[in-house]
Design a protein around this nucleic acid. Structure first.
Lengths: 140, 140
DNA sequence: CTTTAATTAATAATAATTATCATTGGGAGG
DNA sequence: CCTCCCAATGATAATTATTATTAATTAAAG
């Protein structure tokens, strides 16, 4: 039995073909697809699949902390099954999103948040906006 | 002539009553209101104001970099006229948003992004998720 | 197998946002 | 001051993302 199906079971989610398809699609891409993109990518193999199913599936995967949902100021949400903490690089020209897995130490900041505001940090995210290599090469 | 009107003019935006009202409302709050909130707060003083005007106004203020637009995973966008770089503390219990103006030094990270990926960072943002003081006091 | 509760597909409904377009009014140039 | 032009506004329709409903289907426990 594969890892993804185990993860589903561990969270009391039934292992259905659609659910597995959506989950493994997310696990095997490093794009950060929207519901629309997921749907379009899978509808050839699952012609009966409904958009509503994709919405509900990503919602339950998100609730079980198997994937992350985020929004980068666009019109629709993006999803990512890579749960290691990482941050995003957003190219303001081509609008692609890149990952950065290097870890950023913010213990001192989190300590200050706690001592100054009494705020207990559980997690954080971080987005860098700028120009990607390819776009800056084109520019010159 | 006040500062806000000057800012509008500097960006070739006509200084209309509605626009000034929306802009100064944003400049004088440290909530991070949605379009809906802005509209409801101003419609007593500007009974004729239309929701569409609020949408269009925040869009042009955003395009002129006079305010920031962001989304914290909710259904609607939030706006903030405080342009000094700061990050947000999101309480996962009460869903309030707090500001942190302390500056976080990420020069070394940005340098690494440049040398490893060729990514030129223009700006970044950062969100901390956790429990605020008030909520953690209630818990115990 | 059989049962049952969860999942799904189809579709309707809702909420946020954007587009359209006729009207108005800010403000630059006379 | 006036006048005129074009950006801004308001009313409303349209669009887009997402959620709710419901009846049919199916995974998986016993």
């Amino acid at each position: 039995m594969n890892k993804l199906a185990e993860n589903l079971k561990a969270n009391k989610l039934k292992v259905t073909p659609q659910r597995l398809a959506i989950y493994s699609y997310l696990a095997n891409t490093n794009e950060h697809p929207t519901v629309e993109t997921i749907y379009n990518s899978l509808k050839d193999d699952y012609p009966a699949m409904s958009l509503a199913t994709v919405y509900k599936t990503v919602a339950s995967l998100r609730d079980s902390h198997l994937i992350k949902e985020f929004n980068l100021g666009e019109d629709s949400n993006r999803y990512d099954a890579h749960m290691e903490n990482h941050c995003h690089l957003l190219c303001t020209k081509c609008h692609r999103v890149f990952d950065y897995y290097g870890d950023i130490d913010l213990k001192h900041v989190m300590y200050e948040l706690k001592s100054t505001f009494g705020f207990d940090t559980e997690s954080f995210d971080m987005n860098f906006y700028g120009i990607c290599e390819e776009c800056s090469r084109e520019q010159s």
